[in-house]
Amino acid sequence: MDYAIRAEGLVRRFGATTALAGVDLAVPTGTVFGLLGPNGAGKTTTVRVLATLLRADEGQATVAGFDVVRDAHRVRQLIGLTGQYASVDETLTGAENLLLIGRLLGLSRGDAKARARQLLADFHLTDAADRAAKTYSGGMRRRLDLAASLVGRPHVLFLDEPTTGLDPRSRNELWDIVRRLVSDGVTVLLTTQYLEEADQLASEIAVVDHGRVIAQGTPEELKAKTGGQVLTVRPADAADLATVVSIASEVAHATPEVAQTTVTVPVNGPGVLPAVVRRLDTADIQVAELALRGSSLDEVFLSLTGHRADADAPQGADLEGTRA
């Protein structure tokens, strides 16, 4: 198989903190690969190493066939980078930002202007072309960021949390753009905290936590990995919540999540639902809601990492314990 990105054993420390604890990745050419994990999991550090901005302490990586350290200059000619940490100049206009990058990439003044015009049109920014980027809305800013990373027609595109903080409409627009790019043959490495985003765009996902890839596969494979099902119980009387939690935990052999009065827990095997019903009946608990459904990536994440994707990572989360 043809890989646009390969990483083997990437380790990166910042003082006493280990941001990457041995990351391995293989991204097939022409696909969207999702790097999924909470804040501080090591997603951005991974992108910065692959985009030649940061050197790994150990391990090696190639992008488009070139080593990111030895052949960094070649890699830079083939990649585009967009994200929270790679931004346009807010004081310049949209057109000037794209012109600047075109000129830096060696285009003539005329070619750089033409390329800027074309990208501004593609990204519906023509009307705002001559306004300073700081006056743009969040969605326009991200589109300009993305346009800026496409000036050099990259083969590999890094999108570091491209839709964080965007409203749903802008997010959908950006997803459409990414899909269009991939149909043109661009390989995309996407980092995200949003499971839905990875589910929507990526053909393959690596779940990252504490600087390590803890699971990898297609979205379907990952969902199947947790047994595929989630049990939801909501007691009619909130006073029964503690009893429900302990029943759910004993039956599912996992730590349940409690959101208001709803208890959810990932479950394995067919006997769970009858067992829960029996136990609830014995304890004489009235139930307002009882459901068993296929798990979303949210639950996958929870069962893999022991914490929610949007929560800050707890120190020393016991992965094995929650997976059992």
């Binding site: 488009a64 070649r74 083939l78």
Partner: peptide, 21 residues
């Protein structure tokens, strides 16, 4: 070993020209 199996869609120059900087 990985390099051989990877696609190399382009062979861009390895270094910058002297006046580029």
């Amino acid at each position: 070993m990985t390099a051989a199996t990877l696609s190399a869609p382009l062979a861009p120059p390895r270094r910058l020209g002297p006046t580029a900087g």
